[in-house]
Amino acid sequence: MSTKYFVDLEGKYLGGFVGAEPPEGAIEVVGPPEYGTQKWDGSKWVGDLPAKTLPKRDFMKLFTDNERRQISGAAMQNVDVSLWKDGLLLADDIRLDHPDLLSGMDAIVAAGLLTESRKNAILAGEAPT
C-alpha cells in the first residue's frame, strides 16, 4: 500500500495516509509539502520558507568583534540600541525576520554602527569575513 497525501478545502496539509480514510472533504495531492506552513494552491505547494532562527550565540557571531564592541558602547547612550540589546538577552532564540530584531537593526544602522549592506548580510545569516 502506498501513502496518499491530503489537504483540506483551504489547502492546509492534513497528512499522509496509508490504509486509513482521510477526513471527509479532504483533497488528495501529489505529495507532502516541503515544510508545514506551505499551502496547496490546486497544482503546487506555495508559501515562503520559514524564517531562519539561530541560537543567540550564533547570531552574535554574525557580527565582528569591533561591531559588537561598538554596539555595546552605543547601548550605554542610545535607548533604541539598548532596548534592542535587552531584547536579545531575553530571547531564547533569534528569528532573523522578527519585527523587534528588524527595528533594532535599523536603529543600529541609524546610529552609524553598521552599514545597510552589513545589516542585510547579518540578516541573511552570513558570517563576517
Rank of each mutant, 00 (worst) to 15 (best):
D80M: 09
A20M: 13
V81F: 02
A20Q: 15
I71V: 11
R57L: 05
E10R: 12
G11V: 08
G19C: 05
D58S: 06
A74P: 01
L123E: 03
E67L: 06
A121E: 15
S2I: 13
K12D: 08
G112A: 10
Y13N: 04
D106Q: 13
S72C: 05
I94R: 00
E34M: 10
F17C: 02
P128R: 09
G87K: 01
K39P: 01
T129H: 12
M105A: 07
V30Q: 15
Y5T: 06
M105S: 05
L101I: 09
S2D: 14
M60S: 03
D8F: 01
E34I: 10
P50N: 02
L9V: 13
T64E: 03
A110N: 15
H98N: 10
S82A: 13
E116H: 08
L89E: 09
A111H: 09
D48F: 00
M105H: 04
N66S: 12
V46H: 04
L54F: 01
L9G: 08
G25A: 03
S117V: 12
S117Q: 14
K61Q: 12
A75Q: 08
P22N: 08
R68K: 12
K4Y: 09
W45Y: 08
L90K: 10
A74D: 08
G15C: 11
G11P: 08
K85S: 12
I94V: 14
P33R: 02
G104C: 06
F63D: 00
P50L: 04
L96A: 00
D106G: 07
D97E: 11
L14A: 05
G47F: 02
D92Q: 09
V79L: 10
G73K: 07
L14M: 04
D100Q: 09
L83E: 10
L83G: 00
K44A: 12
E67W: 03
M76Q: 10
P50V: 06
L123G: 02
P99C: 03
S117A: 14
G19T: 12
L96P: 00
E126W: 07
P23S: 04
L83Q: 10
R118W: 06
A107R: 06
K12H: 13
D58W: 00
Q38P: 04
P23M: 06
I122D: 02
D92C: 01
A124H: 07
A91I: 01
T53S: 07
I122G: 00
M76T: 08
G104Y: 03
A110M: 10
Q70E: 13
K4E: 14
L123D: 02
L123C: 08
G19N: 14
T37P: 01
D41L: 02
I108V: 15
N78S: 06
Y13S: 06
S2P: 13
G47W: 00
T53C: 02
N66E: 15
R95W: 01
P99S: 07
